[in-house]
Design a protein around this nucleic acid. Structure first.
Length: 467
RNA sequence: GGCGGGUUGGCGGAGAGGUUACGCAGCGGAUUGCAAAUCCGUGAAGACCGGUUCGAUUCCGGUACCCGCCUCCA
């Protein structure tokens, strides 16, 4: 069996991956808060962990891997966005607006991530559907002395968990020292974080022994991973920005609620994304959603290829130049594998690269080697492990067919050009050549004669003008 | 201030203590009436300063610069 090595953020080193149960490999990745379109930074963990999911399925069998990614659909930002909509004239009750907003956003998320070639996780729990489990977990934590209720809030007693700070490498005292920590009056300690908070009448809320309220962000992932994957599972992933406080808090909650479970065995964090060398931000004007890039004409497969060109643990830069190169490479490869039956399994070199801490850039180099060696069947099978060159994603690279009239005209003009060349009327021949290019007809001269295909900007009127 | 990541050839970007990364661009050649496409070949690197070593871009330390987190922004 393939040996997979992964960098475990918690251990701060690369480790051999040994699933708790090889017949039931379990992975949890933090999903989006659904109040707006996913931006291109949100897409990075989706693509990274999609490749890991594919690799795990390849190594352990598709039926032996469970991938869970949540939707956070109860959150202050969602409430704020819904309030904006109401202020802008939406007459529905706030809860109805919120439901419509989160439903629509989830639909967008699915469409956008599908376009990037990401497989849907096995389970995509919505936080609002697991409130009961969250309340039960909070009650359990209170019962064990790790949490306390005060003024309608429930807070986690950070000092009660001695391992707090281990994942992110911080001590509680350091954190307090440097810190702009909100010291709410109901907190015993400044570091304590919210498990449950009160909700106003018009905002979404659930009844509990602490009054009507809603869960804090961190408890969602602890409760849902417990319900769907158990008290211990193999991999927990997410962006490095979530390492603290979100993942640290998840660990504290889960380890205190289920001391024997161990929670996630391996923690993986992807580094962040920049745009043209700068942090993506609305003020710099370099803020893009995935949908923006798709609408600009960047095919999802091209976006995916750009992301896979940089190792997940390194900062990645999105640039137009990279997109251009990725598109050219994929177009070339798609030409090579068109109509080819993929090999029964991916090339060992590609598997080896991915098994070495998800070295996607190395895997792409191996794909180049396969393409160079003419192993198109191997290329196709291996690219599939990266979610590339899939039949269903290739629409963008397909050459547009010409209708019969246009095809006949192109053939006629090509014949005219051949005659002009034969007659050494190079002015006429070159005029036709330039005309084809301007009309969006790509002509390739081969020893067997001229071949042609249509570019995306094919213009029949310009072609007609060449007569 | 605390914690963490990064710095590789013109550009992007990997691995490995000693032997070609790879891709794009460039250059040379084949092919072509000239091109395009294609094919063949090729130069070019390791932020800076020390240390360990027979030998370091690869290990260790320091410096500079960049980035992230410490604020429920992936």
């Amino acid at each position: 069996m393939t040996t997979i090595r992964l960098t475990n953020t918690k251990a701060r080193r690369k480790e051999v991956f040994e699933p708790i149960d090889p017949t039931k490999v379990r992975m949890y990745v933090c999903g989006p808060t659904v109040y707006d379109r996913a931006h291109i930074g949100n897409a990075r963990p989706v693509i990274v962990f999609d490749v890991l999911y594919r690799l795990l399925r390849h190594v352990y069998g598709a039926d032996h891997v469970t991938y869970v990614r949540n939707f956070t659909d109860v959150d202050d930002k969602i409430n704020a966005r819904a309030a904006e909509m109401k202020a802008a004239g939406d007459t529905r009750p706030l809860e109805a607006i919120i439901r419509a907003l989160t439903d629509e956003t989830i639909g967008w998320y699915h469409a956008d991530m599908d376009a990037l070639g990401a497989l849907r996780p096995d389970r995509e729990p919505r936080a609002t559907e697991w409130i009961g489990a969250m309340i039960a977990m909070i009650e359990d934590l209170i019962g064990k002395g790790h949490a306390y209720a005060k003024e309608g809030h429930v807070l986690f007693r950070v000092r009660s968990y001695e391992g707090y700070g281990q994942l992110s490498g911080r001590s509680v005292d350091d954190m307090i020292a440097g810190a702009r920590v909100e010291v709410a009056p109901f907190k015993e300690d400044p570091m304590d974080f919210v498990l449950w908070k009160p909700s106003s009448d018009e905002l979404p809320g659930w009844d509990s022994t602490w009054g009507r309220g809603r869960p804090g962000w961190h408890i969602e992932c602890s409760a849902m991973s417990r319900e769907l994957l158990g008290e211990s599972f193999d991999i927990h992933g997410g962006g490095i920005d979530l390492q603290f406080p979100h993942h640290e808090n998840e660990i504290a909650q889960s380890m205190c609620a289920h001391p024997k479970g161990g929670f996630a065995k391996v923690w993986m964090h992807n580094e962040m994304l920049q745009v043209e060398g700068k942090k993506m931000s609305k003020s710099l004007g370099n803020f893009f959603t995935v949908r923006d890039l798709l609408d600009q004409g960047h095919p999802g497969e091209v976006i995916r290829f750009v992301y896979l060109g940089t190792h997940y643990a390194k900062p990645m830069d999105w640039t137009e130049e990279k997109a251009r190169q990725a598109e050219a490479t994929l177009r070339k490869w798609r030409g090579l594998v068109a109509g080819i039956e993929p090999a029964p399994s991916p090339a060992p070199s590609v598997i080896a690269a991915l098994a070495d801490d998800l070295n996607t850039a190395g895997a792409i180099a191996e794909l180049h080697a396969l393409a160079g060696a003419g192993d198109t069947a191997g290329l196709k099978a291996s690219a599939a492990l990266l979610g590339l060159l899939d039949e269903t994603m290739g629409g963008w690279a397909e050459v547009r067919g010409a209708n019969a009239d246009a095809a006949a005209l192109i053939d006629e003009l090509l014949a005219a050009r051949a005659n002009a060349r034969k007659a050494k009327d190079f002015a006429r021949a070159d005029a036709l050549r330039d005309g084809f290019a301007a009309a969006g007809v790509i002509v390739k001269d081969t020893p067997q004669g001229a071949e042609w295909e249509l570019a995306p900007d094919f213009d029949p009127a310009k072609l007609e003008a060449l007569r």
